[in-house]
């Protein structure tokens, strides 16, 4: 009762903002969405196998985007999938984060410059962590998840926020790559 009036702080009270507490809680219970796309999805499964065991960090797969916090884009995103990927992202509740796993999700990978491949998933959704590799090792995905954990609980603002992408961004609208024959 007398705490507010007195100058003396009891020793078992930690001062901080409520945001810090909430962010710490969020960073310790990141739930990724079960959305395997391509080769990287097998390594994503291997991250949850008994050898790497990402479960021990409080990360469990959720099958519905409504319950998930993290989307791991594990593979090549093509123009047919892009709309569905964006819809899944929109269905996830705020706050939400995206990990781009592997060369294909980063910039198209070996399939870059092909007619059907989106050259980087960051054209569709804002990406927080990029993982290089084709495919990345499970250890690399685990490091990315731990980096993301730091980023969520970031007090010093060391990490940049990703660029926001409008929900109606149309990958098909890129010049010459819309699958429609140009009028000559």
């Amino acid at each position: 009762m007398g705490l507010l009036g007195s100058d003396e702080r009891p020793r078992d009270v930690i001062l901080g903002t409520l945001d810090d507490l909430i962010n710490m809680a969020r960073s310790r219970s990141m739930w990724p969405l079960t959305f395997g796309i391509a080769c990287c999805a097998i390594e994503m499964m291997a991250t949850w196998d008994p050898k790497i065991d990402a479960d021990r960090f409080g990360m469990f797969f959720r099958n519905t985007p409504r319950q998930a916090d993290v989307m791991i884009v594990s593979g090549t995103v093509n123009k047919k999938l892009a709309k569905r990927l964006r819809r899944l992202y929109d269905q996830m509740a705020e706050p939400k984060w995206v990990i781009s796993m592997g060369a294909c999700a980063n910039q198209g990978g070996p399939f870059r410059q092909g007619y059907s491949v989106v050259e980087g998933v960051d054209k569709i959704v804002p990406v927080d962590v990029y993982i290089p590799g084709c495919p990345p090792r499970p250890e690399a995905l685990l490091q990315a998840l731990l980096l993301l954990r730091d980023k969520i609980a970031d007090r010093e603002l060391r990490y940049k926020k990703p660029r926001e992408i409008p929900a109606d961004y149309d990958v098909m609208a890129e010049p010459g790559k819309d699958g429609r024959l140009p009028v000559l």
Binding site: I37, N78, K80, G114, S116
Partner: peptide
């Protein structure tokens, strides 16, 4: 199907024979 179509067959026409193995 087709949600993972990533133009394998087209891009392999533009690669040399040893490069195709990686695809």
């Amino acid at each position: 199907i087709g949600y993972l179509h990533r133009n394998h067959e087209k891009i392999e026409e533009a690669r040399t024979y040893p490069m195709v193995i990686a695809y």
